[in-house]
Structure formats: structure tokens, C-alpha cells
């Protein structure tokens, strides 16, 4: 994304879509008043969805159009019509920069030990080479987690995303037990900075604010997809690891270079595969093998 573009986005975000873009924090008061008094030179701080703290003139603010909780939950369950989201992770390019993890934790207001996206250090067999493997939720087409949910709090959308409604979750953690990819996290204690987000309307597509006693996990940044942006992790990666796109269009875009290629060609030419495919979960996240790697494996950078 070039500079001019991101600036326009930022302005749009600060001005219009405070809560729906996952902005909370100091923007929280927006939801509690309908009119904003325009006083020239009065500047306020805002937290953008990418986690930057910015200042903006109060005069340029207009009331945010926040969909009601019911509306938000309804469209969150429906998903984006005609889409079939898919992610491709190129293991040959990952050098454990962890920008994806940081962006993700900021976007979804996660504590440092909570990972929607976790970069794992893998070694498949004794004599094979180690490699880094970013691991989001696989958004399985045959999801074991949604099957076991007793209250339909986690569900599969038309566009392929497995989402969570933390206004409904009862915290039984059956989905954690059912997920073979350890993709789910639980809010065992008060979520990070929860005191800042009191009164902020829940946004199902980013699962923020997080709630104590409920589940969270990778959502492919469904709120950003609705705004026509790539997921946080994909955009944050400095090493062109991630490709993301719509399988119906057979096109995936690289989050770093912006290059768009054919999804099926990418998978076919590089022997793409899915994780633990023998379990029959049919993941929507594909991996390209760590072959011809762009960097040497650097060992245990982050212990444990």
C-alpha cells in the first residue's frame, strides 16, 4: 500500500468509521454522543485499526455510523456475498520477523501470550531442515470446532470464514478441545486494556472488545475484508510471506508486494499443501513448502 493511499485511508478511518473499523480506545466516547462540537484547533487522540495513536482536528470529525449490535451480528454471520477467502503462506520466505503477530495482537486487542497468528519453529523429521511456520486459524471447510459448539457461538460463514460471537459464547472451551491446530485462545482473565473499552459496541468481525470468559481466534480480519483491505497480518508482513484472496476469482494478492497471481497456479506450481490434511478438516489456508529458502534458519530466537 503506498503512502498517499494509507493517508486517505487513515483520514477516512478517523473521520467516519471509528468503531466499525475496530477503532476503540479513545474513540470510545464517539459511540456515546451523536453530535460533535466543532471547535477549531481542538485536537484529540485516536487509535487506528492498525494500532497507531494519531491526532486529528476535532472539527474534521463527523459522528461515526456504528451498526447496532444486532445489525453487526447479523451481517457478521452472513459474511461477504460471493466470496471464498483463501490464504497462501510461503514458508520459503518467512524469516520469523513476527510483524504479523504484532499487527494481529494490536488489531484484536490480545494479551502478549494470546496468538491468533503464531509463528512456530518446525522440524518434521530427524534429518529434515527446520523452518518457520506462521499458523493462523485454518478456516476449515469441515470445521471440527463449529460442530461441537453447543450454542452456535462459532460458525462457518458463506465466504469461508469461521467466526465467533463472543456475545453468545458460554466459555465451555469444547472448540479448543476440538481444534487440532491449537488455533483458539481463551480470555482466561480480563482482556488486555479492558478498562479502556468499557461501553464500546462489540464488533463481531474483529471480535473486539475481547470479553473475559469467551473464546477468540484468527478471523482473517473480517472487518478489514469488509472495508476492502487485506488482513492485518498479511499487510504487516515485510517478507512477502502471505498471499490472500478470493478463491472464486482464483486470485491472491501478496500483502507485501501487492502483486496479484492466480491462486490455482501458485498452489500447483509450488506443490502447495494444507496442514494435517489427513484429518479431513479441509483447511482454507495453504502452505508452500520451505524450499529454496530466502534466508538461513536462525534457531531458537524466541525460546519455548
Amino acid at each position: 500500500m503506498n503512502n498517499a493511499n494509507s493517508r486517505r485511508n487513515f483520514l477516512k478511518m478517523a473521520g467516519l468509521t471509528a468503531a466499525s473499523a475496530g477503532v476503540a480506545a479513545s474513540a470510545g466516547f464517539l459511540s456515546s454522543c451523536n453530535r460533535i462540537e466543532a471547535v477549531e484547533g481542538d485536537r484529540i487522540k485516536l487509535l487506528t485499526s492498525s494500532g497507531e495513536l494519531v491526532e486529528v482536528d476535532r472539527a474534521s470529525l463527523t459522528p461515526a455510523e456504528i451498526p447496532s449490535l444486532t445489525e453487526n451480528q447479523k451481517r457478521g454471520r452472513a459474511g461477504l456475498p460471493g466470496r471464498k477467502w483463501v490464504m497462501v503462506i510461503d514458508l520459503a520466505r518467512c524469516r520469523n520477523a513476527r510483524k504479523c503477530m504484532e499487527a494481529c495482537q494490536t488489531h484484536h486487542q490480545l494479551r502478549p501470550e494470546q496468538h491468533h497468528m503464531n509463528v512456530l519453529q518446525m522440524k518434521d523429521a530427524e534429518n529434515t531442515s527446520p523452518y518457520y511456520m506462521p499458523k493462523p486459524c485454518m478456516h476449515c471447510d469441515n470445521p471440527p470446532c463449529t460442530k461441537v459448539c453447543p450454542v452456535n457461538a462459532t460458525f462457518k460463514r458463506e465466504d469461508g470464514i469461521v467466526l465467533i460471537d463472543n456475545e453468545r459464547c458460554i466459555g465451555c472451551r469444547f472448540c479448543i478441545a476440538a481444534c487440532p491446530y491449537s488455533a483458539r485462545v481463551f480470555n482466561w482473565l480480563e482482556p488486555r486494556d479492558s478498562e479502556k473499552y468499557v461501553g464500546v459496541t462489540y464488533n463481531i468481525e474483529a471480535n473486539v472488545p475481547q470479553k473475559k470468559g469467551t473464546i477468540s481466534k484468527c478471523l482473517f480480519s473480517a472487518d478489514r475484508l469488509r472495508d476492502g483491505k487485506l488482513p492485518s497480518c498479511v499487510s504487516a508482513c515485510p517478507n512477502s510471506v502471505y498471499w490472500f484472496g478470493d478463491q472464486n476469482e482464483d486470485a491472491v494478492t501478496n500483502g507485501t508486494t501487492g502483486e496479484t497471481v492466480s491462486f490455482s497456479n501458485l498452489i500447483r506450481d509450488n506443490a502447495g499443501y494444507t496442514l494435517l490434511e489427513e484429518l479431513g478438516t479441509k483447511p482454507r489456508v495453504y502452505y508452500l513448502p520451505p524450499k529454496g529458502r530466502a534466508f538461513p534458519y536462525q534457531g531458537e530466537i524466541h525460546p519455548s
Binding site: H115, Y181, H302
Partner: peptide, 11 residues
Amino acid sequence: HPFLPVQNVPE
């Protein structure tokens, strides 16, 4: 003992 390694979390 999940399928994937437990990493980047406290002990």
C-alpha cells in the same frame, strides 16, 4: 500434547 508444537507462550 496437541498436534502442533506449543510455542511462544509462558511456561
